[in-house]
Design a protein around this nucleic acid. Structure first.
Length: 465
RNA sequence: GGUGGGUUGGCCGAGUGGUUAGGCAGCGGCCUGCAAAGCCGUCCACACGGGUUCGACUCCCGUACCCACCUCCA
């Protein structure tokens, strides 16, 4: 059994067989940094993070490229609106994106190229397309891809030319479906938003950057290309057409993640119905719970976001986290190291990353482990504890990973620990003389301070809410 | 209008032609001074109408509704 993935191009589940044994080249369309990221974007980041982790676990040496589109019409508009340089807008949002990826434990890609750093690779590719007769420049200095020159156009999204409406881009193009490769600089646009090219000053169209950057870092042919279903057409279709027309094999598999909806419609920058990770944090949801929430749904399914569902996910996540902590406290942290992935977990992951089924295995294992702890079966408990930890770690959700710790002041934590211990000693004395009113008062006082105390067979344990 | 996906129990969410998904919430019990956590048990299901089949939630046809894309968008 090995990894099988749903491939949009063939509309089927296919065995993953890399072009180069032992290596996997993956390109993910990252974000256009016109605004701060929302959790729909983060869903994409988490989904592919899970894929990359699984590929690595499966023994592949993975080269993972996730681009940043830092030049685009809307970024220029934002700059104009805010009276700031367009590149200041782009970089600010890129930093926010990096911050949110990090918060959700999304590992950095191997390379994270910016569009503006690869203009040369793009103009080279465009020149090649013009030379081959698949693109043409107009008087204005724009360059268009000729859709009619490429017979396979539509092979990815399975659209027939007669079904297609005209591209939104206007200009002196020969066919309404032709899309822009190079946009001539227009009067009034920032001078520093233009680069020199054989067709005059201008900037690249959206689609060409991904073709150029994928080629630059992954070669003319690579394994997996990913992105959201919303950019399958026209973006990916255009990428595919222009790359193939330029003589490149391009991606072998196309993977698309489902949308995250809010109140029934897609969360998107243009609709304004967005929700950030920080906003969820203010509502009391932990970053780990958000990651768990996004992971507990298969990546291709649409997710209708709701706080209720997220709250349920947080409870479920805490159950797993509690179990791992409980095992570590009872048997020592070293007993939770080196666990094995359950065969059912591996089978679920290999089956087009069926994370909900994988998570079900986690819960079943945790239940067995909790029962073993209750029964005093340390060996079985350790096996379950280490297994759950290993499987959670595989999903980027190891509760003992320092990543999830609150970055609080270590000295302050030490001081609080000493004070709470003092209070708990007094409570223990009260309980010993069966003065439960006094004991409960101490516990209530601590609760008011945000400290939850629970009694375990090995004594009280406290946590900060 | 075109293309694709979906409709599972109070909620989230997998899956299979005949066997308990899993979680959250609820209910009963065990444990606990109480609580929390945990364990055991339990209620609640496959949009609707036909068809195929010994048997369909699971395959086929139709209907309804929802979502995405067809225009910038993960």
């Amino acid at each position: 059994m090995s990894l099988r993935l749903y491939d949009t191009g063939t509309r089927s589940i296919r065995d993953f067989q890399p072009r180069k044994p032992g290596h996997a080249g993956v390109y993910l369309c990252g974000l256009t940094v016109q605004g701060p990221p929302h959790i729909g974007h983060l869903r994409s980041g988490v989904s592919y993070d899970v894929l990359i982790r699984w590929l690595r676990r499966s023994g592949y040496d993975v080269t993972y490229v996730r681009n940043v589109t830092d030049i685009d019409d809307k970024i220029l508009v934002r700059g104009e609106e805010q009276g700031r340089p367009w590149w200041a807008i782009a970089y600010e949002n890129e930093r926010k994106l990096a911050r949110d990826y990090a918060a959700l434990n999304v590992a950095p890609p191997t390379y994270e190229p910016r569009a503006t750093g690869h203009i040369t690779q793009m103009t080279d590719l465009i020149a090649s397309l013009v030379e081959r007769g698949h693109a043409y420049a107009t008087e204005s200095g724009d360059v268009w891809f000729s859709v009619s020159s490429w017979a396979d156009y539509g092979e990815l999204s399975h659209r027939r030319p007669e079904d297609m409406l005209s591209s939104a881009e206007t200009g002196a193009k020969r066919d309404s479906r032709d899309f822009g490769l190079w946009k001539a600089h227009k009067p009034g646009e920032p001078e520093d938003a233009a680069w020199t090219s054989p067709w005059g000053p201008g900037r690249p169209g959206w689609h060409i950057e991904c073709s150029a950057m994928a080629r630059r870092y992954l070669g003319d042919a690579f394994d997996i290309h990913g992105g959201g279903t919303d950019i399958m057409f026209p973006h990916h279709e255009n990428e595919l057409a222009q790359s193939r027309a330029a003589g490149l094999d391009f991606a072998k598999y196309w993977v698309h993640n489902g949308m995250l909806n809010l109140s029934g419609t897609k969360m998107s920058k243009s609709l304004g119905n967005t929700l950030s990770v920080a906003a969820l944090g203010e509502k009391g949801f932990s970053a780990a719970a958000v990651r768990y929430y996004l992971t507990s749904v298969q990546y291709r399914s649409a997710v209708d976001f709701s706080e209720e569902a997220l709250a349920e996910a947080q409870s479920a996540w805490e159950r797993l986290s509690n179990f791992v902590h409980r095992t570590a406290e009872a048997l020592g942290t070293e007993a939770t190291i080196g666990g094995a992935l359950a065969p059912e977990f591996t089978a679920a992951m290999d089956d087009d990353l069926n994370t909900p089924a994988a998570v079900a295995v986690l819960h079943e294992t945790a239940r067995e482990g909790n029962a073993a702890l209750d029964a005093g079966d340390d060996a079985a408990a350790a096996r379950a504890g280490a297994g759950v930890r290993a499987m959670l770690d595989q999903l980027g959700l190891d509760p003992l990973d320092p990543h999830w710790d609150d970055p609080g002041d270590a000295k302050l934590t030490g001081a609080v620990d000493a004070l709470v211990k003092l209070a708990l000693e007094q409570r223990a004395e009260a309980r010993a003389r069966k003065d439960y009113a006094a004991a409960d008062r101490i516990r209530d006082d601590l609760a008011h301070a945000g400290i939850t105390v629970k009694d375990t067979p090995r004594g009280p344990v406290w946590t900060v809410d």
